[in-house]
């Protein structure tokens, strides 16, 4: 991709997203004016907090995309940093891991995003799974603290993989050369983020409206079969309806949207399992109503890498 082309598709996408936000804000304000029971009021308050946070997120995302590939890379780099900071906070490490963590935050993370920004695909795919994977345990081992060594090493590597490597596949979409689609890759990034996030929102909405049967009660009591089916179906339909901003045919767009929403659901489940394991409800409190950065992007962590490779395998020469 050379430069981003500004065309009608952009205005339609932006207009659509801001239109949804305006409608959501109006509905939220209307709901908060209605007499409700205490738990209903709490739900509406949380809903409005989420909508306010969505405004901020959408504006930041739009501004970053206006900055082209650099803007998108920096934005996702910052998101990775915040997510990794939350992850490391909840997975206690010992003094012997301090230097490995420093390398993760201040060497591997920036280096990896530099590879995204400069479109160095070969090293981008192996820096963290190969070089960080081999170097970080060595650095920890040099501190000669062997207690829980394998577990500690695995946690650091897992944090880097999920918070940095997986997330970075979203801005990495900008490095793909898709025939007949030059200059439009940023729209593919918006499509992915939109479908994944709409799936989360619609699963939440459908669950609140019709949710009865919990899907994995031990993991996450708020995820229901009704929310899952309704949210995934609606978000896949949105993905298919937006086929015209992608290089896909309508049926392909629908199928790929179904794939990324299912992966997003999987990401939410796995991250819930981690939260249960360490005994917290949210990873952080950076986004009002949403919890932490990692709570917001857990679905993207799982959807982005697979989506990237689906596009790269079938839609690039």
């Amino acid at each position: 991709m050379s430069t981003t082309t500004l065309d009608g598709a952009w205005f339609a996408l932006l207009g659509g997203v801001f239109g949804i936000l305006v409608v959501a804000s109006v509905v939220g304000t209307w709901l908060s004016g209605r007499p409700l029971a205490a738990d209903g009021q709490a739900t509406v308050e949380n809903l409005n907090a989420r909508i306010r946070a969505w405004w901020v997120m959408v504006l930041v995302f739009a501004l970053a995309l206006a900055g082209g590939r650099t803007g998108a890379t920096v934005l996702f780099g910052v998101m990775s940093f915040l997510a990794l900071r939350e992850f490391v906070t909840l997975t206690p490490a010992r003094r012997g891991d301090h230097e490995s963590l420093f390398w993760s935050f201040f060497v591997f993370l920036p280096l990896h995003y530099w590879l995204v920004g400069t479109a160095w695909y070969g090293l981008f795919t192996i820096l963290i799974p190969v070089y960080a994977f081999l170097f970080l345990p060595l650095r920890s081992a040099l501190n000669a603290d062997t207690r829980g060594f394998l577990e500690r090493t695995a946690k650091i590597q897992w944090g880097l993989m999920v918070c940095v490597y997986c997330v970075s596949h979203a801005p990495a979409l900008l490095m793909l050369d898709i025939p007949g689609y030059a200059g439009h890759n940023a729209q593919l990034l918006v499509w992915l983020v939109l479908v994944v996030q709409m799936s989360d929102v619609l699963q939440y909405v459908c669950g609140k409206l019709w949710g009865r049967r919990p899907i994995v009660p031990k993991l996450s009591p708020s995820k229901t079969v009704e929310g899952f089916v309704g949210g995934i179906a609606a978000a896949s339909a949105i993905g298919a309806a937006l086929w015209w901003v992608t290089p896909f045919a309508p049926w392909q767009a629908g199928l790929i949207a179904l794939l990324v929403t299912l992966l997003g659901f999987a990401g939410g489940l796995v991250m819930s399992a981690i939260k249960r394991d360490v005994g917290v409800k949210d990873f952080g409190a950076i986004l009002e109503g949403h919890g932490g950065m990692l709570d917001r992007i857990d679905s993207l962590c799982f959807a982005a890498p697979v989506f990237f490779h689906v596009v790269r395998y079938w839609f690039t020469p």
Partner: peptide
């Protein structure tokens, strides 16, 4: 958790909440 950001004997900090 400040001891995990910059523990005794460490020259460089690690970000944590």
């Amino acid at each position: 958790k400040l001891h995990r950001v910059l523990p005794k004997g460490a020259a460089l900090p690690v970000p944590l909440l």
